[in-house]
Amino acid sequence: MQPLHKKERIMMAEKKQIIMFWGRRCPHCRAMEPIVQKLEEEEGIKFERLEVWENKENADKMRALADIIKPACGGYLGTPAFYDPNRNVALCGEKPYETLRDWALAKIDE
């Protein structure tokens, strides 16, 4: 994957909406929150945060994506799980800023 220029990233981010499935007692979800906030502020990526243990509807949404999320999470519905509806792909677990940014801004054919 080629690194993107800032302008190009912002243009792509304007169209981007990433779903973040998280659990309120999950330490990795807690660790990812500042990174997600930074990506929202610096790159303009929009994250829809869906807590799965307290909200049954969110849990069902996550379960409905099991075929996509489980392979990305080592065979489980792990949290935090990031889902890109445009590309129909998932990224799972605690990740560095750059990894999540590049994944979130990847084009459909990447």
Binding site: C26, P27, H28, W53, A59, L77, G78, T79
Partner: peptide, 8 residues
Amino acid sequence: CPCRMTSG
């Protein structure tokens, strides 16, 4: 586990 959702 607080870091994995149940399947139901």
